[in-house]
């Protein structure tokens, strides 16, 4: 336990030297706190439609209201939940699929590698966004559609990275040593190889969350999200179709946009820093 703490402490000491990474962590902490404790922070019920439509920001409604009289700030805070959950779930699935395929391809090699990597190649050359739009349109709009579509096309780049790392780890002599102890392939893969690349998986996972949130926003903006489960992307979609742009209701457009930008930036900064830090560790 104490050694775990010491590890975290050592990690933090290197991490905090990166200003952007610390900034990312602060932004993320603030956003996540607000999103998680949405009932505490949102001034109104996000479903209450009792204010005057298109009220500009003021003392009563900090960020104004939308076309049906919903307080934008409250709506935005609750929308963050959907964006974040979709992002994390999709990224989780992508990391799971990507790591597993990379692990098997890299470690087992031979025809397993050949087949898995050819599948990866095929998926990687598919035009991602159009394909996701087609899939989402075909399956019908919804949160799970977006998660599914993203999971299907999102994993190949991670797989390639994981595989290349596995290729170098599997040549280490502790792998041969564990074979000499009588360990089988599956055991070696999961107890010896995988822990050695956990850093890369974590760093890539964080980056994946960013991509997933952006993708979700993009697809939702195009109307492929679930209108009953508003995410930031869905908010922008409604702003677009309900004439926020025509009426000059900037307070309806900027806040969700800025939220998407902020959360993406913070995940990106953190992910980049983690990638560097774990990369350093490997080189040591």
């Amino acid at each position: 336990m104490r050694s775990e703490l010491r590890k975290i402490d050592r990690f933090w000491r290197v991490y905090k030297k990166r200003k952007s990474a610390v900034a990312g962590l602060i932004i993320l902490t603030v956003l996540v706190t607000i999103i998680v404790f949405a009932p505490v922070f949102s001034p109104y019920d996000p479903d209450a439609k009792d204010a005057i439509p298109f009220t500009p920001p003021g003392s009563e409604h900090l960020l104004g209201t939308n076309d049906i009289g919903v307080d934008i700030l409250s709506e935005m805070i609750y929308a963050g939940r959907v964006s974040l959950i979709v992002g994390i779930t999709a990224a989780g699935i992508v990391v799971f699929i990507g790591s597993l395929i990379g692990l098997f391809a890299g470690f087992l090699g031979g025809w397993v590698d050949e087949i898995l990597m050819r599948i990866t190649d095929i998926v990687i050359i598919l035009p991602r966004f159009p394909l996701m739009i087609v899939m989402a349109a075909y399956l019908g709009p919804g949160v799970w559609t977006i998660i599914f579509a993203y999971s299907i096309v999102g994993w190949p780049s991670l797989t390639r990275q994981i595989r290349s790392q596995i290729l170098s780890v599997k040549e280490a002599s502790f792998i041969e040593a564990s074979r000499a102890t009588g360990a089988g392939n599956i055991r070696i893969m999961f107890t010896h190889v995988l822990p050695n690349i956990q850093g890369i998986i974590i760093a890539n996972g964080v980056m994946e969350i960013m991509f997933a949130i952006l993708t979700e926003a993009g697809l939702s903006f195009l109307g492929l999200g679930d209108p009953t489960q508003k995410s930031w992307g869905v908010m922008l979609y409604f702003a677009q179709i309900q004439g926020a742009f025509l009426r000059g209701a900037w307070w309806w457009i900027f806040p969700p946009g800025i939220c998407i930008a902020l959360i993406s930036c913070s995940f990106n900064y953190i992910g980049t820093a983690l990638n560097d830090l774990f990369g350093l560790k490997l080189g040591k």
Partner: peptide, 11 residues
């Protein structure tokens, strides 16, 4: 095995 050559798992 040769410990110096990475016979122990670093993690």
């Amino acid at each position: 095995s040769q410990a110096a050559m990475g016979g122990l798992n670093p993690v």
